[in-house]
């Protein structure tokens, strides 16, 4: 008896983590679409690295596929990283800026 209930709870908890917080019907469509979009975007981005070298592109695409499967609800991470918290934005700005400088100065 108990096992079925706990299975139900497990499934419920698993599905609940897709919809962080604001769960109601019209949000759900948005989150699922965004999840699919985000994974496809990730794959396309990975394949873009072929302009530097084709093997790198292939490896990145495979890594991206693995990443999409392992870190399943991507959109939750994406939403968290897109918060307007100042420290978070500052962190990403510093990272971007360092990449820009590293690539332009020592990239050749």
């Amino acid at each position: 008896m108990g096992s079925i209930e706990s299975l139900y709870d497990k499934i419920k908890n698993f599905t609940a983590q897709f919809f962080g917080g604001k769960g109601f019907s019209s949000t759900m469509t948005g989150y699922t679409t965004a999840e699919l979009q985000a994974s496809v975007f990730l794959l396309v981005l990975a394949s873009l690295f072929r302009i530097f070298s084709v093997p790198l592109g292939i490896i990145l695409v495979i890594a991206a596929i693995a990443g999409v499967i392992v870190f399943a609800p991507l959109i939750v991470t994406l939403e968290r990283e897109n918060e307007s918290d100042l420290n978070r934005v500052l962190f990403w700005v510093v990272i971007y800026f360092a990449i820009i400088i590293a690539v332009t100065m020592w990239g050749r």
Binding site: Y31, A38, L48
Partner: peptide, 18 residues
């Protein structure tokens, strides 16, 4: 790269707004 990331982030985040 900045442009592509802006497009992707912006449009994905737009999807989940209510």
């Amino acid at each position: 790269s900045v442009s592509v990331l802006t497009m992707i982030m912006g449009v994905t985040m737009a999807l989940i707004q209510t």
